[in-house]
Amino acid sequence: MRNICLLWLVLLQISCSSQFVGKINGISFVASRDRATEAHIAPVKNIHAGHAAVMPFGFIREVNSPDIIFDTDRQWYGETRMGAKQYIELLHRNGIRVMVKPQIWIWRGVFTGELQMDSEENWKQLEKSYEDFILTYASLAEETGAEIFCIGTELERFVDQRPAFWTGLIRKIRERYKGKLTYAANWDEYGRTPFWASLDYIGIDAYFPLSESKTPTVEELKEGWRPWKDKIAALSEQLDRPVLFTEFGYRSMDYTAKKPWLMDRDEGPVNLEGQVNAKKAIFESFWDEKWFAGGFVWKWFINHDRSGGPQDNRFTPQNKPAQEVISTFFKLYR
Rank of each mutant, 00 (worst) to 15 (best):
N3V: 06
I4Y: 09
W8F: 12
L9M: 12
I14S: 15
S15P: 14
G22I: 10
K23E: 08
S28L: 04
A36Y: 11
A36S: 14
T37A: 13
E38W: 13
H40S: 09
I41S: 10
K45H: 09
N46A: 12
A52W: 13
A52Y: 12
G58Y: 01
I68M: 00
I69D: 04
Q75S: 04
R81T: 07
A84L: 08
Q86V: 05
Q86T: 14
E89G: 07
H92A: 09
H92T: 02
R93K: 15
W105R: 10
F111H: 08
T112V: 00
G113E: 00
E121R: 07
N122V: 06
W123Q: 06
K128S: 02
L135H: 03
T136I: 04
A138Q: 07
S139G: 10
T144R: 10
T153N: 00
T153D: 01
R162V: 01
G168A: 05
L169Y: 02
I173K: 02
I173D: 01
R174A: 07
L181T: 01
T182E: 07
N186W: 04
D188V: 03
E189N: 07
R192F: 07
P194D: 09
P194F: 04
G203D: 01
G203V: 06
P209S: 07
P209T: 03
K214A: 15
P216H: 12
E223H: 15
R226T: 15
P227D: 12
W228M: 13
S236L: 09
S236Q: 04
R241H: 12
P242V: 02
F245W: 03
F248T: 04
R251A: 00
D264Y: 09
E267M: 11
G268H: 10
N271F: 06
L272D: 02
L272R: 14
V276W: 08
S285I: 14
V297S: 01
W300V: 02
N313H: 11
F315P: 08
P317F: 03
V325W: 04
Y333N: 15
Y333G: 06
